[in-house]
Structures are given as C-alpha cells and as structure tokens.
Amino acid sequence: MAKTKRPGDGRTLIASNRKARHDYHIEATYEAGIALQGTEVKALRLGRASLTDGYAAFDAGELWLEAVHIPEYTQGTWTNHTPRRRRKLLLNRAELDKLRAATRESGKTIVPLSLYFKDGRAKVEIALAKGKKDYDKRQALRERQDDRETARALHSRGRDD
C-alpha cells in the first residue's frame, strides 16, 4: 500500500522528492492533477514511483510532467504503460499563464515535490524553483548542523538540572 496518510486531510503520500528542496530555492508551490492510465494508477496504489529526475515543461500551451518513473504494473497485460512517459498536468489557465511567464526568466524551472492521492485522485505538488549554487547548499547544511548541535546542547543541559 501507499506510504503514509496525513490525519484529517485525506492525503496518502506515494512519493516525495526530498532532493528538490536541497537543490532548489522553492518560490511557489501548486497542486496539479495528473492524467494517468489505468495501470499507472494501480502501480501508484502499490506506492511505487520516483520523482528524483522529474521536471515539468510547456509544450503547445500545456504543462507536461517528464522523466517521472512509475514502474510497470506487475499484473498488467499488453495494456501496460511505459514507465517514463510524458504525463499531462491539469491546472487552470491562470496558473498555467503564471508558470509560463515565470519560467521564461533565466534559471527558473518547475520541479515535482510530491505525488499523492487526495480523496481518491492522483495529485502532484509542483514548485516553481530556482537552482541553488554549491555554496548555498553548503551554507544550508552548515546551518542545519548548527541547529542540531544547539538543540542537542540545550537538551543535555536540561537533563543536568
């Protein structure tokens, strides 16, 4: 079955792209529907997908999710899907226009953050993102390590009392 269910919001997480938050500055997030074939939905219900190399791109005025891996459904027949095929993202026209205008700026891209079921429908959370430089990544790691050490020191100080 799928991995986790958040209490109260009807979401069942299938896959998340944790590397995206490390590699990009997230500027805005959007929830988009995704057009899937039947065997893709069945494979997702088993909790199998990978967003690691995924990105979204415009083609003929429509937004497409590319390079997302949904493995073939093991019990599928000749109707099985191709694992890395392009999948259409479903957003309203205003959101598409905002994203198209924003991605025309240099250095901005659209990356998938998570794939989940919401009330029985497959959704993907996409983000308008700008790539981080190597020194930004090192700085973020250093800050996270400092926060961890501070929390550890405060925790151990509380035990001595």
Score class of each variant (00 low, 15 high):
Ser156Met: 14
Ala43Lys: 00
Pro112Lys: 03
Leu65Val: 10
Arg45Leu: 01
Ala153Val: 06
Arg86Cys: 00
Arg148Ser: 07
Thr103Cys: 05
Lys123Leu: 03
Gly131Cys: 06
Arg104Trp: 07
Leu36Ser: 10
Asp161Thr: 11
Arg86Thr: 02
Trp78Asn: 15
Ala122His: 11
Ser50Asn: 14
Arg48Asp: 07
Thr12Gln: 12
Ile70Tyr: 05
Leu141Val: 09
Phe117Ala: 03
Ile110Tyr: 04
His155Lys: 15
Ile14Ser: 11
Lys42His: 05
Gln145Val: 04
Thr29Asp: 03
Leu36Asp: 04
Leu154Glu: 11
Arg152Lys: 15
Glu95Val: 03
Gln37His: 09
Arg87Trp: 01
Ala20Leu: 08
Ala122Asn: 07
Leu96Thr: 06
Gly158His: 09
Lys132Thr: 02
Ala35Gln: 05
Asp119Glu: 14
Ile70Glu: 05
Lys132Glu: 08
Lys108Met: 10
Gly131Lys: 15
Ala49Tyr: 00
Tyr73Ala: 07
Ala43Pro: 04
Lys137Ala: 09
Tyr30His: 10
Arg157Ser: 14
Asp136Gln: 15
Pro71Asn: 11
Gly107Lys: 09
Glu72Arg: 15
Gly120Arg: 03
Ala67Met: 06
Lys132Trp: 08
Arg11Ile: 07
Gly61Pro: 01
Ala102Asp: 08
Lys137His: 07
Leu128Asp: 13
Ser16Met: 04
Arg11Asn: 03
Lys3Tyr: 06
Asp147Lys: 15
Arg11Asp: 01
Asp147Thr: 13
Thr77Tyr: 05
Arg104Glu: 12
Arg152Met: 11
Thr52His: 09
Leu89Lys: 00
Ile14Gln: 08
Glu31Gly: 02
His155Cys: 10
Asn80Ile: 11
Val111Trp: 06
Arg100Gly: 02
Thr82His: 05
Leu128Ser: 13
Trp64Phe: 14
Asp160Cys: 05
Ala102Ser: 13
Gly54Leu: 06
Ala28Tyr: 12
Ala153Pro: 00
Ala101Leu: 11
Arg144Met: 04
Val41Cys: 14
Ser50Leu: 00
Val124Gly: 03
Glu31Asp: 12
Ala94Leu: 11
Pro7Asp: 10
Trp64Pro: 03
Met1Gly: 13
Glu105Trp: 05
Asp53Ile: 00
Ala43Trp: 02
Arg84His: 04
Thr74Gln: 13
Arg84Met: 08
Val41His: 09
Phe58Val: 13
Thr39Tyr: 09
Glu66Phe: 00
Arg104Cys: 02
Gly76Tyr: 01
Asn80Met: 04
Thr12Met: 06
Gly76Leu: 02
Asp59Pro: 01
Glu143Ser: 08
Trp78Arg: 15
Arg18Trp: 09
Ala153Ser: 13
Ala43His: 02
Leu141Glu: 14
Trp78Ala: 14
Tyr30Ile: 05
Trp78Tyr: 08
Arg85Ser: 14
Leu51His: 03
